[in-house]
Every structure is written in C-alpha cells, then in structure tokens.
C-alpha cells in the first residue's frame, strides 16, 4: 500500500502526553496518523467511534497514563485488557506493528505482550522498575541496535548502529524475577528479541548515567518473538530533527535527526507487508 494510505492509531487516554509529537513524527513522513482516545475504541461517542482493525499500525505513546499511580503502565494495561483485548490480539496476529514508547512500553510489558517469551502471557514476565537513582531522569541516551532481523518493523535500522534518543522516565529499569536473569537473557538472544541496549559515547555498555535506570544487561528495548510488537524506554520522537539533538550546535550537522529512521522503518515495513 501507499504510504499516505497507512493509518496509524496513536492511542491516548488521560495522562498520555507524547501523542502530539508521535503523530507529528508519522505525519512528517507522509503517513496518515490519528490521535485516538481509548474511549473512541471501547465506547460509541456520537460521530467519533473508531475501530482498531481500520488501522495498520498501533502506537502507545509516552506519558503517565492514569497517573501511573499503581505501577507504570499497569492501569493502562488493565483498561486495554478489559476493553480491547480481543481486538488487540487480532491486530497482533495479523502481523501489524504495535509500538510502545516509554509509558507505552511499560503498558505492553504489563499487558504480557512483551517480552512474550514463548507467547503472550497473563502475568507480566518482566517489569520496568523504578530507576536506580530512585527519581525521574531526563537525559540523552545512546542506543545500540542489536536485533539480527527478527524485528521487521525496524529492519531499516543498521545493525550495531547507534541511535540517539532521550530517556525521560522514573520507571525504566528492565528487570526479571530474581534468579531468572541469565535464562531470560539467553532466551531473548536466542529468539532475537533484543532491540536496543544503552551504551556510552565510546560504544561500551556503561553504567549510570549512560544506562539511566540500571536496566539488566543495559536493555532499552525488546520485541516479541514474532517481531511485530516492540517497545523501548527512550523517545525517538524527540530526536526526529537534528535540532532536537542536545549537541547540534557543536556537531554542525543539519537536517534529520536519529529518530526519523525509527518511524521511517515502521512505515516502510507496513507499506511492504500490507
């Protein structure tokens, strides 16, 4: 299909707050994104009802959905589970991309869609726990793309290439149950579900602040075993333009920012697959 026919559903509810820039990212690449409130999918507001099946990609943007007062993403996940689970499952089974950024990633983990080792689960297999610093961290992050090809929507990203995108979260520490760290790590590698890992400017897997939250194995993003559900903590929509990079006045580089390829790749995948 043509790029301008690609309908992207950017899901909102109270407290999501990165939807406008996420919509802008897809729109600037020629797609047809739409900000859709969860109530438009699960209720029938006069003249504003939407059906998930009419979209080719779903994005859960960043923010503090419902305040994140229980656990980051938990309330959002619970509302998706109660109102939209069947539609969501059908969407995923069709191979359409589902992308969670920051709070959206947290929600997909809470929902059991990620990492989804061995398939979708009823109980979260991992958690995005409170940062080691115990507070919010807004800082530049460098992400090495380590997927070997499983993740179709990000196929345009060069393997081992570095993508700069800021982190901005309180709960981003990728954690699994104690004692299962190595097993999960091995399973992620084996099924090629690893997407991004935090590195320092020299490209090494460094500690704080380059790993802003203390994530296990510096994990910043993963996908499901099929590769079409993916999530990451940092915000590629915040490095869409070169002028959003924190050091553009030094580098002298102009034009596109690192984050653009992330969205470009998703759209390319959709236009080729559907």
């Amino acid at each position: 299909m043509n790029r301008d026919d690609v309908r992207v559903c950017v899901l909102t509810l109270e407290g999501t707050n990165c939807e406008d820039e996420t919509v802008h990212a897809f729109a600037s690449l020629g797609a047809n994104p739409e900000k859709v409130h969860l109530n438009q999918l699960v209720r029938d507001p006069p003249g504003r009802h939407r059906a998930l099946e009419d979209y080719q990609a779903l994005v859960l943007p960043g923010g503090f959905s419902s305040g994140d007062y229980v656990r980051a993403g938990a309330i959002w996940a619970s509302r998706l589970r109660s109102g939209l689970r069947r539609d969501l499952r059908a969407f995923v089974e069709e191979g359409k991309p589902v992308v969670g950024i920051c709070n959206g990633f947290q929600a997909l983990v809470e929902l059991g869609f990620l990492p989804g080792l061995g398939g979708e689960t009823d109980v979260p297999q991992a958690s995005l726990a409170t940062n080691d610093s115990a507070h919010y961290e807004c800082r530049p992050s460098l992400l090495r793309y380590e997927n070997r090809g499983r993740c179709g929507p990000l196929a345009l990203l060069p393997r081992d290439g570095i993508l700069q995108a800021p982190s901005a979260h309180t709960e981003g520490k990728f954690t699994v149950p104690q004692g299962e760290e190595e097993a999960v790590w091995g399973a992620l590698l084996e099924a090629d579900q690893l997407l991004f890992r935090y590195v320092d400017p020299e490209g090494t897997y460094a500690g704080y602040p380059w790993n802003p939250n203390g994530s296990l194995y510096n994990i910043a993003g993963v996908c499901n075993p099929e590769g079409n559900v993916l999530g990451l903590m940092p915000h590629p929509e915040r490095s869409l333009s070169r002028y959003l990079h924190p050091d553009w006045t030094r580098s002298g580089e102009e034009g596109y920012g690192d984050g653009r390829l992330f969205f470009d790749s998703i759209l390319t995948y959709v236009t080729e697959a559907f």
Partner: peptide, 25 residues
C-alpha cells in the same frame, strides 16, 4: 534538579537548559 524535570516533552525544546558535550554539559 534539571534532569528530574522533563524538559523535552512535546519535542519542541531545540535549545535545552543544559548545553555542551554529551555527559559534560
């Protein structure tokens, strides 16, 4: 303090409150 505030949400902040070499701002 500055890094505990989200100074980039909305993706409009082209000149940020901390400036310079990454990690040395």
């Amino acid at each position: 303090v500055i890094r505990q505030y989200d100074h980039e949400v909305m993706a409009n902040t082209v000149i940020k409150p901390l400036q310079g070499v990454l990690g040395r701002q």
